[in-house]
């Protein structure tokens, strides 16, 4: 038996899949690829599969992680076999025996693309330099005000053209990670509501800022 980790991308049409959809999809894709999955004991045995840090529906991921247990050797070409049985926009990147626990994930880098049909207004980045950026955060308990500034450690502009600007933000990934759409909410509060926004998680990082694998 061994523990394995897959790095995958969830982009394009696949960004609309929920956490449960991703679990379901991998369970079946692993079966199709002939992976000897290890099942839990008990009345309703299910394969041991866990996806680290669920992405909100609509957000792309470029270095997502899924850990799973197998009971036998995977056989040759496991990654290729898996890659050939995945949905269109889920891509298998790397399959390996992990050396670190997902608990060590501390930060996540996101790109935030804001689209303005009539041109990007000034002062986008400045909106996020205030010490207090109030956003109304929805949770199970209801809606309450929260400071978006506490949710990220760095933000900078990555690129822009006439109608869109792309920011790169490093978000705290530890407790209750924030949905990136709160960045658009903050812009809206500042009178700069974008007409459309796209979000993508680029990578996970360790506490020392090194890439997590």
């Amino acid at each position: 038996m061994s523990e394995l980790r897959l790095i995958f991308q969830k982009v394009g049409t696949a960004k609309y899949l929920s956490q449960l959809d991703v679990m379901r999809t991998f369970t079946r894709a692993f079966m199709r690829a002939g992976f000897p999955l290890k099942f839990s004991q008990g009345f309703n045995p299910h394969p041991r599969i866990s996806v680290a840090h669920p992405l909100p529906v609509g957000v792309e991921g470029y270095a997502e992680l899924v850990d799973f247990d197998t009971k036998d050797d995977m056989g040759p070409d496991a990654l290729e076999r898996l890659a050939s049985v995945l949905p269109q926009d889920i891509k298998a990147v790397k399959l390996y025996t992990p050396q670190s626990s997902v608990k060590e994930i501390t930060f996540a880098d996101y790109t935030l693309e804001f689209i303005y049909d009539s041109g990007v207004p000034d002062g986008i980045l400045e909106t996020f330099s205030a010490q207090n950026i109030p956003v109304m955060k929805k949770s199970k308990g209801g809606v309450k005000e929260s400071n978006l500034r506490d949710a990220f450690t760095e933000i900078r502009e990555e690129s822009r053209d006439g109608r869109s600007v792309v920011l790169l933000a490093r978000l705290d990934a530890r407790n209750a990670p924030i949905n990136p759409r709160y960045f658009a909410d903050a812009l809206a509060s500042a009178g700069k509501a974008p007409d459309f926004a796209r979000y993508a998680r680029r990578r996970f990082l360790r506490a020392d800022g090194e890439a997590f694998e």
Binding site: G12, T13, A14, Y16, L17, S18, D21, T25, R28, A29, R32, V57, G58, V85, L86, P87, Q88, D89, F196, A197
Partner: peptide
Amino acid sequence: ILSRVEKPARYVGGEY
């Protein structure tokens, strides 16, 4: 459009 509707996955295809 999809950013505003319920269960957008059912409108995009792309399944295995």
